[in-house]
Design a protein around this nucleic acid. Structure first.
Lengths: 229, 229
DNA sequence: AATCAAAACTGACTAATATCATATTTTGAG
DNA sequence: CTCAAAATATGATATTAGTCAGTTTTGATT
């Protein structure tokens, strides 16, 4: 793969932009680019990661398997996001597994390339810290939503979230396509319950569907639902 | 207040231990110590924090108010923990409010004292990063528990967690005393449901109570319950 | 185009949990 | 010590969401 980090626009969206030209060149020399097919795993829960993965294209779900065999999707990572940093920084094995939700292209950066810079370039470290602080806030919000909102509210919120964070296509459908099961795993409910609520929303014209694709049709209704009427 | 950070043992438990003597002295010069009564607020959700709070004694609950008026407790901070760093680092107003669960003594450290060192001492920054990585992992675990475990399992787990993290007294009661309402807010359930399950656990001799105090009596039974029998 | 498995969907039933009402106990202020 | 308020407790009922069983649709493959 001939693309060099120095020339990669993606890094504008993540902490790598705080690296100096020199550091970036060194990272670029050790990185490798991989193509991953939809459904394939990038890494698994419990695995020791010896590097981080920078998403160049596509979307990956970061999930955790629970005792009863269900997956809980904790985060969706798309273009520009770095996966696995938490584990590399904490020097622990991964608490999440990453599976491609669409065909992907990711760069693997060996951890030495990251850790060395962390200890030498405070700007970079602070930038990583900021990102993690942001992730932590989001996680707090998810906790509150999980415990205080109904499944219906969480599904409504998920659609708004997906639209705001991944965009929609020309016809008004969400750019990201998830199976009903994945949606259920994002909001933490049974697949059947999720499908039932999607049907209800469709009947009420809150959303429209076309195959697996889903589009927000009545933003206000969804928002009112989330906020408790 | 005459206690100096350099001599404070508490800091061994948090990221401040990665500061140099010099840095610590400077921090110490700007810090103030406050006494907070049980039930009083240290800071509120939405408030701009111009510093962080280091817990010297007592316990604080970090919670988030939801639309329906219920509090979700996201974390319990005790001796050695630093509160408010996330907000200071992300330069956002606080996403959580902090209320004392017992009488407390906390040190307030103005943010300049922290931010300056963050940009100058990579060891300190990495240490803070490690802590935040740990908090993030815990948050992920909480998300999964919330969505995949029953209220009964979450309550059982909460008691084990409280014992492991805050210890128990000579008579085998948890060192930390929370109201039933607070326990309900930790596990994300209605107070009545929480009380009912506590009664059930007591009847089954999984726990013992004495006033508000709760003690683990049958660890194995609780653990089995958490793990799904 | 026919086939087949996976995904999406629907209905009936059950289990878990919230809500509302009310009783009882504990606690802290004066 | 007394009393009111707050916390704890319990019962009845309603609501939400999960489970199981089955049907239909979709899409990939030959």
């Amino acid at each position: 793969m001939n693309t060099r980090c120095e020339n990669c626009i993606i890094r504008q969206f993540n902490s790598l932009r705080a690296m100096s030209k020199e550091e970036l060149k060194r990272v670029s020399d050790t990185k490798t680019t991989k193509t991953i097919k939809k459904g394939e795993a990038i890494f698994a829960e419990g695995e020791k990661l010896n590097g981080v993965f920078c998403v160049r294209d596509g979307v990956s779900k970061l999930s955790k398997l629970s005792a009863n065999g269900k997956d809980q999707i904790v985060k969706l990572a798309s273009k520009g996001e770095v996966m696995g940093q938490r584990s590399v920084i904490a020097e622990e094995s991964s608490n999440l597994s990453a599976i491609a939700v669409s065909d992907m292209e990711v760069c693997f950066i060996p951890k030495e390339g990251i850790v060395d810079v962390l200890h030498q370039n405070p700007n970079f470290t602070v930038e990583v810290l900021r990102h993690m602080a942001h992730d932590l806030r989001e996680a707090d919000d998810v906790i509150v939503n999980m415990s205080q909102k109904t499944v219906k509210q969480r599904i409504a919120e998920a659609f708004l979230y997906l639209r705001d964070n991944f965009g929609e296509d020309a016809d008004g459908y969400l750019s990201i396509t998830l199976s009903r099961e994945d949606i259920a795993n994002v909001v933490g409910t049974a697949t059947e319950s999720c499908i039932r609520i999607i049907s209800e929303f469709k009947k009420k014209k809150y959303i429209k569907t076309s195959g697996k694709k889903i589009g927000v049709q009545n933003e206000k209704a969804l928002r009112d639902l989330v906020d408790g009427f």
